[in-house]
């Protein structure tokens, strides 16, 4: 019975994340953190950050990968299935009717304005994700150096995210062993 309870809580949490996950990937992480770490305390902040790192390294959408992983950590394979379905089902229910409505009202100024108005908020959500992950990652001078170096590489070279994460792992073993 306890299990059934956790499954429904998991489903509702991830359904919310799918339903309000405007702006894709990283902005959904902010929602995920609020639900999983702060509200339900299912995972510690560090566990959460590590799961995101793995979700980032694995092919596929970050939001879905983290949902699968978090679901598994909380309630095993069943949890992984429930959490993944929870994130996807709002899209399945919404996208086709919304696509019809949007095509119908796409010329509507108000809709255009609302869709544009969301942009700064989506960036703020990504900012929140960066803040949450950053606070738990940049813990001393060495990690600050790794983070600064990684950002510099991203800005000035066309480094692939996977390569960057691999370099981070190498830097970690060099600095922290």
């Amino acid at each position: 019975m306890i299990n059934l309870n956790i499954f429904s809580e998991l489903f509702i949490s991830f359904f919310k994340i799918g339903l309000f996950g405007f702006g894709g990937g990283y902005s959904m992480l902010a929602l995920l953190e609020r639900e999983i770490v702060q509200l339900h305390k299912w995972l510690s902040a560090t566990e959460f950050v590590d799961i995101i790192a793995v979700a980032e390294m694995t092919p596929g959408a970050v939001a879905i990968n983290s949902a699968t992983f978090v679901g598994y950590q909380i309630a095993g394979v069943g949890g992984a299935i429930i959490a993944t379905l929870g994130v996807i089902i709002p899209s399945l229910l919404l996208v086709i009717p919304a696509a019809r409505l949007v095509t119908l009202f796409y010329q509507s100024k108000k809709l255009q304005h609302a869709l544009h108005g969301i942009h700064p908020a989506v960036l703020a959500l990504i900012g929140l994700a960066a803040y949450v992950v950053g606070v738990n990652s940049i813990v001393d001078i060495k990690s600050a150096l790794i983070g600064g170096g990684a950002l510099t590489l991203l800005i000035f070279t066309r480094i692939h995210p996977l390569m960057l994460i691999a370099l981070g792992a190498v830097a970690g073993t060099m600095f922290y062993l």
């Binding site: 590590d50 790192a53 990690s143 983070g147 991203l154 960057l164 981070g168």
Partner: peptide, 12 residues
């Protein structure tokens, strides 16, 4: 992971 976490922060 001590190095991977700051790299992920930088990506975001």
């Amino acid at each position: 992971f001590m190095g991977i976490r700051p790299a992920v922060t930088a990506l975001i």
